[in-house]
Design a protein around this nucleic acid. Structure first.
Lengths: 131, 131
DNA sequence: CGGAATCCTGCGAGATACTG
DNA sequence: CAGTATCTCGCAGGATTCCG
């Protein structure tokens, strides 16, 4: 992956112009919501149970935690394991597929860390010129 | 970039548990919306003028095109150039910073292409078991 | 403990019409 | 051509309550 990619077409599958079924967007539609990435990142560290995620992610509602987990399970990114015990215990972990997603997300994470100051600077510069 | 990253912590900056200011999320908050990536991808190919983007992206409203472009310019990802001619002409191009973002987005794109079938399969499998 | 079922709300975003 | 300005509505997502 070259560092200087001037004119590298990110998607080759639509030379006609309008990338309607653009694969990047397809992922972002699934994972670009408010909580999915956060959960994936958490599960990337280790397996968590429901209540752990609930407490760790702070700000998420039970509703959204459930819905997001369900969607991730449905897409085969997360695996749900119910332990038949009392009190009940449910573990969530990344699947093999989910772990492969961690890689490009890490790339994005690195970009964010490297350039967050650039963005802040650009934003301030822009805002100072014309509120 | 290793292919097998079992247990690689995607973000090292928050061992305490709750990644509230998670940098990945910060990027996704900016670029995970409906149109930003599409525009970035288009501008990654070449410079476009306003009306070209309007036609190419198909489905976007003038309102959203304007708003999205404005946000991208503000964050220093896109550069706006007004040519003093009549009729007026405005060109949009990626900045150097914007071009660096193309790289991790490409990584995500590759992931999408490699695994879109896996996701579809997992989804169908899941839906067939319990509609 | 791990959810499911409702109710309610803000705002993301489309449609349409107008302007320098 | 390259945008504003409104008006509108759907639905993502929060709060709350109940269930096995």
């Amino acid at each position: 992956m070259s560092a200087t990619n001037t004119g590298v077409p990110p998607t080759e599958r639509d030379p006609s112009g309008h990338p309607e079924d653009c694969p990047v967007r397809e992922v972002l539609d699934r994972v670009g919501d408010k909580w999915s990435v956060l959960i994936i990142v958490m599960l990337g560290r280790r397996t968590h149970r429901y209540s752990e995620l609930d407490r760790a992610i702070e700000g998420i509602s039970q509703r959204m935690l459930t819905l997001t987990l369900r969607a991730l399970v449905r897409d085969g990114l997360v695996e749900r394991t119910v332990h038949a015990s009392v009190p009940p215990r449910v573990d969530y972990a990344l699947t093999e597929l989910g772990r492969t997603l961690l890689e490009p997300l890490t790339a994005l994470d690195h970009w964010a860390n490297r350039h967050r100051d650039d963005i802040r600077a650009a934003r301030e510069r822009h805002d100072r010129q014309q509120g």
